[in-house]
Design a protein around this nucleic acid. Sequence first.
DNA 1: GCGACAG
DNA 2: ATCTTGTCGC
Length: 252
Amino acid sequence: MSVLPQDELIKMWESEQENLKQQVLERDTEEWQRASGFKGLQRVGGVDLSFIKGDDVKACAQLTVLSYPQLEVLYADSQMVTLSTPYIAGFLAFRETPHLLEALRRLERDKPSLMPQVVFVDGNGLFHYREFGLACHLGVLADLPCVGVAKNLLHVQGVVRSGEHLSQISTLQKAGDTFPLTAASGRVLGKALRSSDKSTKPVYVSVGHRISLDTAVRLTSACSRYRVPEPIRQADMRSREYLRTHFPSQGT
DNA sequence: GCGACAG
DNA sequence: ATCTTGTCGC
C-alpha cells in the first residue's frame, strides 16, 4: 500500500494549520476570566498521552477534570489508543488531537455536567513555528478555552535556550514570576513562568484558544501546586498508572 | 552542511 | 514520550 511521501504530508499539515489558525481567539471570551479570583470558574481540565517503553504506537489517552479552586479530581478517563502518525516537532497535534477529542466526546456523552471550562494542554499553543501548536489545535476543534503549557523550550522564531535565556530564567525568584517569549518580529508568543517557589525550571505558557496570555499565565499559576499545573500533572500520573497496571513491564 | 527540535 | 532507585539537600 502506498502512502503520501512525508514531505507531501507535511505540506498538507502546514496548510491545515494555516487554515485553522484563522479561528483562534486570543482573548478572554468567558465571564470568569475577567472576574476577580476567577469567580465562576468551577472545573479545569487536563489532557495527556503516556507511552509504553518500546512502543510509540500504543498509548494511554487521559482526560482529567478538577474542581476549582480546590483542585480535587472530579473525573478521570483512561483509554488505550493507537497512534497513526509519528511525532514530528511542529506537528504534535496531528498525532494527539484525535484521541483528546475522543476523550472530550466520551465526557460529553457520560457526564456532560463535568465538561471543563478550560483545558490545560501538555505542549504549546501560539508559541509555535507557525503560531498554531497543539493547544490551539485542540481548542479550535473542541471550541473550548485552552492553555498550552510546555515543560521544555521549543526553539521558535529566534527564541532559543541561549545564555541570555538562561540569564532571564535566573531572574525568576518566586512563584508567579515571568518573562516574555518574544519572537524576532517583536510579537510576544508566550511567557516563561516560575510555577512554584520550589522549582527553578520554568514552564512555558502560551494561549491556546479563547483566553488572553495574561489570563492564561495567572490561571496556570493559580492551578500549580508543583511545577506542572495540577490538571496536567494528574492526567500524566493517572495515564502512567493505567499503563503500569494494564501493561506491567517484563522483568528478566 | 550541521545541529536544533513541544510530546 | 521512555530508559530508572536511591539519594542529597532544604
